[in-house]
Amino acid sequence: MAKKSPAAEAGKVSQTRVVVKGKLVKLRARRLPAGGETLYLDYNEGGKRRYDFLGLHLMESAKTSKDRQQNKDNQLLAERIRSERELQLSKNSLIVKASVQRRADFLAYLDEYVESYPKKDLRVMEAMRKQFKAMLGETGALPFSEVTVRLCSRFRSHLEAKCSGSTPYNYFKKFRKVLRQAVKDGLIDRNPAEEVENRYAEGIEKEVLTTKEIQLMANVECYLPEVKRAFLFSCVTGLRFCDIQALEWKCIAGSVIRLKQQKTSKEVVVNLNGTAIRLLGEKTKSNGKVFELPSSTTCAKHLQNWANKAKIGKKVTWHCARHSFGTNLLISGADVRSVSGLLGHSSLVETQKYVRLVESLKEKAVEKLPEIVF
């Protein structure tokens, strides 16, 4: 007599511990003291065993058609979950340690997602997680069933209140990405964050220094001369602080810098003008860093003190140099594509912020013209 399949036997309790045998994941049934069985997954990951109880049960006395159908539904669901987990392991994808689909803990999933995030923008993902947990306050768990459109909308509003510029947009974009993965992992049927509008903030949130203001700072001494030299170099190259801090002599050949940006991993080529070459000074060693800078916190402190000493009257951060570089290039007549390439933008969308800022500055300049009385 042919052996019946597990699905065919779903109307009554299976007498064997192994319900479905897979290469990496087995579906097992464990008898309960009160009768019936509970279904769970048995993982074999590189010789290490772990178990995941699904919270799905088979009734021992399934006398009614309703009970038999319930047994069948529970077993089919368990088999589908086992099949999905098997596929996930075979593709080395993210393994979700949830027990049942919609009852899984989103916060635990978020933690695991961030901890295993492989890309360069990990710090943005970590900051998003911090803001989400700050909004929730003290909470032990958050079931996926409670991650609703309303909660996502509340998080978007929280970001708008706590962050500025394009940060709310960028953080919520990462939040959507996590939920999109949860859909792929079969934990939720749809992404509720997709139904919440994610507006991109116009303009640049940082202050911009004019060429006149940069010259004022150049005329004033800074307590740490290396900070002054590096910041002015950033003003004429558009390099971020992290790239300036890590810049090595081997990246410079004549009047050209070739380096891979730490933030985006995109390679940029920057042509050095006379000012930039003079700021580099003499090459003291064949290799090693061009600038010997302290921590970013120390640099920021001395940078603002230096700007105050020059009577700039603005909140000057290191990223000011990058924004000033892009803006001043456009003011001087450079085309958008050239500026985009020098800044290492992945698309012209990001560079358009500088174009709008330049137009705004022009409008303000016209408004400041004195009236002519006649």
Score class of each variant (00 low, 15 high):
residue 343 L to F: 02
residue 345 H to F: 07
residue 13 V to I: 15
residue 191 N to S: 09
residue 344 G to C: 06
residue 119 K to G: 12
residue 121 D to H: 07
residue 362 K to I: 11
residue 84 E to Y: 11
residue 214 I to R: 04
residue 252 I to F: 14
residue 137 G to S: 09
residue 300 A to K: 13
residue 45 E to P: 13
residue 220 V to K: 08
residue 93 S to D: 04
residue 63 K to H: 12
residue 21 K to V: 02
residue 323 H to S: 07
residue 170 N to A: 14
residue 9 E to Q: 15
residue 89 L to W: 00
residue 161 A to D: 15
residue 23 K to Q: 10
residue 87 L to W: 11
residue 201 A to N: 12
residue 83 S to N: 13
residue 126 E to C: 05
residue 321 A to T: 01
residue 274 G to R: 14
residue 316 V to G: 04
residue 215 Q to Y: 09
residue 260 K to A: 13
residue 353 K to D: 02
residue 189 D to L: 01
residue 96 V to P: 00
residue 217 M to V: 02
residue 73 D to G: 01
residue 26 K to C: 15
residue 283 K to T: 03
residue 27 L to Y: 07
residue 177 K to A: 15
residue 100 V to A: 13
residue 287 N to V: 10
residue 187 L to D: 02
residue 95 I to K: 02
residue 369 L to A: 14
residue 100 V to K: 00
residue 46 G to W: 06
residue 116 S to T: 15
residue 339 V to I: 11
residue 266 K to V: 15
residue 92 N to P: 05
residue 19 V to W: 06
residue 280 L to S: 07
residue 271 N to S: 12
residue 264 T to R: 04
residue 249 W to D: 02
residue 148 T to G: 12
residue 253 A to N: 11
residue 74 N to D: 10
residue 88 Q to S: 08
residue 218 A to P: 08
residue 164 S to K: 14
residue 178 V to S: 04
residue 177 K to W: 11
residue 251 C to W: 00
residue 115 E to R: 03
residue 95 I to D: 00
residue 180 R to C: 14
residue 75 Q to Y: 08
residue 308 N to T: 05
residue 291 F to K: 00
residue 355 V to A: 12
residue 72 K to I: 00
residue 82 R to Q: 03
residue 150 R to K: 12
residue 141 A to S: 10
residue 234 S to N: 06
residue 44 N to E: 12
residue 186 G to K: 06
residue 221 E to P: 00
residue 53 F to N: 00
residue 202 E to W: 07
residue 373 V to N: 10
residue 210 T to S: 05
residue 28 R to Q: 11
residue 339 V to S: 06
residue 291 F to C: 09
residue 266 K to R: 14
residue 371 E to M: 13
residue 310 A to W: 01
residue 256 V to S: 04
residue 257 I to S: 05
residue 334 A to Y: 10
residue 256 V to M: 08
residue 98 A to H: 06
residue 310 A to P: 02
residue 78 A to V: 07
residue 295 S to V: 02
residue 353 K to P: 01
residue 162 K to R: 15
residue 60 E to T: 10
residue 163 C to W: 12
residue 215 Q to G: 12
residue 212 K to R: 00
residue 58 L to P: 01
residue 220 V to F: 03
residue 208 V to I: 14
residue 61 S to F: 10
residue 368 K to E: 11
residue 170 N to G: 04
residue 51 Y to L: 06
residue 242 C to G: 08
residue 49 R to F: 09
residue 59 M to E: 15
residue 22 G to H: 05
residue 350 E to F: 12
residue 288 G to D: 08
residue 184 K to C: 09
residue 132 F to H: 06
residue 7 A to G: 09
residue 5 S to I: 03
residue 118 P to N: 03
residue 165 G to M: 08
residue 152 C to G: 04
residue 334 A to Q: 03
residue 277 I to M: 15
residue 35 G to Q: 08
residue 280 L to R: 11
residue 49 R to Q: 11
residue 53 F to T: 03
residue 322 R to W: 00
residue 273 N to R: 11
residue 19 V to E: 08
residue 143 P to Q: 04
residue 226 E to Y: 10
residue 366 V to D: 13
residue 343 L to N: 03
residue 211 T to D: 12
residue 141 A to N: 05
residue 46 G to C: 06
residue 76 L to G: 00
residue 110 L to S: 01
residue 41 L to A: 06
residue 97 K to A: 13
residue 365 A to G: 12
residue 313 G to E: 01
residue 245 Q to H: 14
residue 46 G to S: 05
residue 73 D to M: 07
residue 9 E to K: 14
residue 224 L to Y: 14
residue 230 A to R: 06
residue 247 L to E: 08
residue 167 T to R: 09
residue 226 E to N: 06
